[in-house]
Design a protein around this nucleic acid. Structure first.
Lengths: 217, 217, 217, 217
DNA sequence: AATGAATGAGGCTTCATTCAT
DNA sequence: CATGAATGAAGCCTCATTCAT
């Protein structure tokens, strides 16, 4: 009765099964960031994931489904980033989180090349466009709320509503993402991060510092 | 003297050569905007241009050369846009030109889907990255100069230099371009333009209007 | 004595083995009739049978073995059909059984699409060809015997031997099977059956009715 | 002026261009007869035709289009066979043409394995079914007419109309085609032909010889 | 006995590019 | 200058088969 313990050893695999999808998506992210959606072959992904091509098709209907799932992931990454931003003590720090999401050395879940590709793809794929639009709206709503409740914004917001400010902030964030893909490859995550923080502070000063007050630092 | 007549017969083609290139690039822009670089086949381009596939190879070494030439074109479009911006009477109007460059009904030379694709491609193609970086630098230099000479900027610029302001402005401009690819296809150029103008004015107010002055409109 | 209980538990499966095979072959017939041998995947069969793919390989060496087994089944179906034909009181009724074997609503064990596929496959598979040839020979021998002992054939058989008559009869039967695969899908088994009965009677009249006698009906 | 004669040499190719389709279909027929539709790869066809795979797609949209074109060809072959049958001096000779169409050594345009495959395929492809049904109807109409005008049929037709007789004849013809795919490969065209002729005469005797007359031969 | 995850060869199709005309 | 037939490598995807559990 207790002889078949080996079966219990397979328990960890119960958890590993749903991770196959993640494993594939992890590999896909690497490939997509490296060569773009349409330059990445299914074989590239399978090789990066260390599995066979056929196995991908057990977890995804086709290549487009992989792209869609990556877009879903992007949605979650942005959502998590937003959560972290919400927990920041000040609005400035929230913005710093928003602007440096793609500058983490070991956890680069938001990769600018991928995101730019995603938007490019969304311009031809209605389903993707819907999803990305939704991500954007959710994120902007989150930032709107952050602004609305921030004490910094009481003084001076140039007569703009939190919503309008959030739109500007997000435009800058996406624009900086576009700039980021042009950075020389030698640039480290830390250096990118430094550049982003600088811009964040400038933007913050412009938006939320009343002219009278002296700019700190 | 009369032996080389055949060559003389080709004289009119000397002028036609640049035209052929333009014709091909015009077609390529349409195709690239519609389906992206890597989803567009050389045959797509030739069909759109109304010529044979082989002819494209007489004017361009290969597909990548077409993409490169398109990037060069982008550089010229941005340069021309900058010229027009320089001729505007006020800084606000200059910015309006900058922000609505992709919203012209019949002359849509700056097409957002193409530009986003261009940046995506630049992230994997060093030569393209150099070129796009150069475009960006030139454009930002131009805007920097516009800001520097504008009387509006004397009052209050949040302690930011013209260069820093130009960077922010351009980030917003590129960010709005990313948003633009998500707009529903039913939206007309006029509607897009209206949205862009609104953002332009908000940005302008934020950057160059001192808090004291009441927001117009 | 009680140690090997697990093995005893598998006893009922000894009987289930032939059932499994039948279950798989039942499913295979459905699939083969629907899409043909080479358009049917092992997964199709397993899904139709409600079992896993791997299980099929416990009962059949490979896909070709399934096809072979199906051919064997075909042999048995034809053999059973022949038995029924032998029990019919008249030659005409025997022929009716022969010609309507594929027109039974709930027991359609002889499915024309499958049989035609079987012959097509036999043209490239020597083993299958042998088997089908054998089925044909056996069946024709059976019909030959039916003819030989039938009182109807005493009068007039156009100077043809029972063997020759059986060959003609079988050619018509297989030819009608080919026609059957062209029938519109809306046609019911009853309608197909009616068509077949008509042909059967005509053939019977031609072969076994002497000219002098008036055609009944 | 007369130097460029080589261009005139290309004239024969003007005719060869439309022949590419035929060349491909010729190759396809060989392959299909050898291995069946679904066991034949596009590479098989291209190799048999001595061209590259890609070239097939310049002349056919996809593999199914090749099969469809083959079905169209079948229609023409049957039509030509019918024309030849119409020119025969006697009904028996007409039937001989009908029954031996697939037994020609060097011009085997009607290949039984292919035809049986075609019917099998028609059972799953409505378009093909329509076409084959049409071929069958046309052919049966032709034979009906042959019977109607034949003096041999005045005497005795068992009370069956020409249409009914044609149906029986065609059933036998298709049935014999099914038998043909089972013949051992060693059998020569001449031997097959002899077998078919024998059956033809038996059928003819059964259908059109009044019982009274002695069977010739 | 039964499952279904995993493999990888192979099939269909596309496409950048060349070249004879 | 211009055409478009031709090539063949490469991409997406399927599927027969195996094997650990």
């Amino acid at each position: 009765m207790f002889i078949h313990l080996p079966k219990l050893m397979s328990l960890p695999q119960i958890e590993s099964v749903p991770d196959r999808r993640s494993q594939i998506l992890d590999a896909a992210l690497v490939c997509f960031a490296r060569r773009g959606f349409h330059q990445t072959s299914m074989h590239d992904i399978s090789a990066e994931a260390g599995i066979s091509v056929g196995l991908i098709y057990r977890y995804f209907e086709n290549k487009e489904a992989v792209i869609s799932a990556m877009a879903d992931r992007h949605k979650k990454e942005i959502s998590q980033m937003l959560d972290r931003a919400r927990q920041a003590p000040t609005l400035l720090e929230s913005l710093e989180i928003l602007f440096t999401a793609h500058c983490c050395e070991n956890e680069p879940r938001v990769i600018s090349a991928f995101v730019v590709d995603l938007y490019a793809e969304a311009s031809r794929n209605l389903h993707l466009a819907d999803l990305v639009r939704d991500v954007l709206r959710t994120a902007m709503d989150g930032v709107t709320e952050l602004i609305a409740r921030a004490p910094e914004t009481e003084n001076a917001t140039h007569g703009l509503s939190p919503t309008e400010l959030a739109e500007l902030i997000f435009a800058v964030a996406r624009g900086m993402l576009m700039f980021d893909v042009l950075r020389p490859q030698e640039m480290t995550a830390a250096e990118r991060r430094a550049l982003q923080l600088e811009v964040t502070r400038k933007l913050w000063r412009v938006l939320f510092k009343s002219e009278a007050e002296p700019a700190y630092a």
